[in-house]
Nucleic acid binder design. Structure first.
Lengths: 198, 198
DNA sequence: ACAATAAGATACATGACTGTAGCTAACGAG
DNA sequence: CTCGTTAGCTACAGTCATGTATCTTATTGT
């Protein structure tokens, strides 16, 4: 942007609006996202928002779809346990980011619109290669270290489910000890790698 | 109450207010509970509410604490799998009741007050004998059919976590097939009863 | 250099919710 | 029966969000 610019346009403005929408959704929580608050946070008049969107949730959806992609696990070849713990660590960090909390604000809203949630899953999640532990589990299954028949929807969801619940109960990050406990006591047994049965 | 009564007092009035608060919280969702809406639903003036509470969340907490206790699992002695599935069924039914959705509305609120959530756990949950699958798992551990060392916080949370996540993803009841899958593919393996290892 | 576009700064009526206050009349206890 | 309590009714000013409608002016593209 040139030096003397006083007025944002195009991408620069959109980025500011998107950032404001995600932060605002994260702070305000389910069902409390308003055009007014987004506009204030982005320091732009409401009319600029209404020019493009008629509903704050549509705006938020565009904002989430536009965000930088989430960091992905990089599974190796010989440390399934460590890679699973690392994937859960990534998930925790993401969940506490504005984007993660904004997603929560959509999913946890009992007045949520089914189409809206479907759009979230398509545009934001499907664009990535699955969720955190999923990536790792599929990787090791492809390398023959996990029976692919074990990777059912339940098992692929295990880590994320336990982390989510713990975060909701505590309202805080579960901590690495707990993540290791999840891997050792839930995920590994479920794929037939129970440490206690060795 | 006598026939000609035109004015509710004491318990009758309180019950109406409590019911209104729980239903309203369930419908409105996290952070959207208002004195006004509770008062309208209970058909009482706001001043009656303000006489006793200064915050709608305090009111809701009293309402939840006052509710009829949740149905408990009745584990037998020889059907661990069936009892676990039944416990998850009970949990699903509770989760979709107004009380369950009201609890969700508290826990999923990012602006939630830590003291408030703590009070919820103490006054509402602790009063019961633990959560759904917990009751069953502890019962069978006492009868020597499960190694008590296996009943870690992670394992005791498994069923509830998977059900919660599934409900958040789908926005609907998981269905009995899924509940059975949770028991077979997650809980039983975690307590060393993996059907695939027999 | 000019014209089209769109950001920015208002203003407005409407509607929800807040917290407080004052009044009346029904109810319950003594 | 009488009196203290309190439900029920109404009103108020204040705050916040909504959608729409101006008007001005910086910026861009031709």
């Amino acid at each position: 942007m040139a030096e003397g610019q006083t007025r944002r346009r195009g991408k620069a403005l959109l980025d500011a609006i998107y950032a404001a929408a995600v932060e605002e959704a994260a702070d305000a929580g389910p069902g409390r996202l308003t055009m007014d608050a987004i506009a204030k946070r982005a320091a732009t008049p409401r009319s600029t928002l209404y020019r493009r969107w008629s509903d704050p949730n549509d705006l938020l959806l565009d904002a989430l779809a536009d965000l930088h992609p989430v960091e992905q696990p990089h599974p190796g070849a010989d440390d399934l346990r460590g890679d699973l713990v690392a994937a859960l660590r990534l998930m925790c960090d993401w969940a506490f980011s504005p984007a993660g909390r904004a997603v929560m604000a959509i999913v946890a809203n009992p007045r949520r619109d089914a189409d809206h949630v479907a759009a979230l899953y398509e545009r934001v999640f499907a664009a990535r290669g699955g969720t955190f532990t999923q990536t790792v589990l599929r990787h090791y299954a492809e390398h023959g270290q996990i029976d692919p028949a074990r990777l059912t929807p339940v098992v692929l969801d295990l880590g994320e489910a336990l982390v989510t619940k713990r975060m909701m109960d505590l309202g805080a990050d579960p901590g690495d000890d707990y993540l290791e406990a999840i891997v050792d006591q839930a995920i590994l047994p479920a794929i037939g790698h129970d440490p206690a049965n060795r």
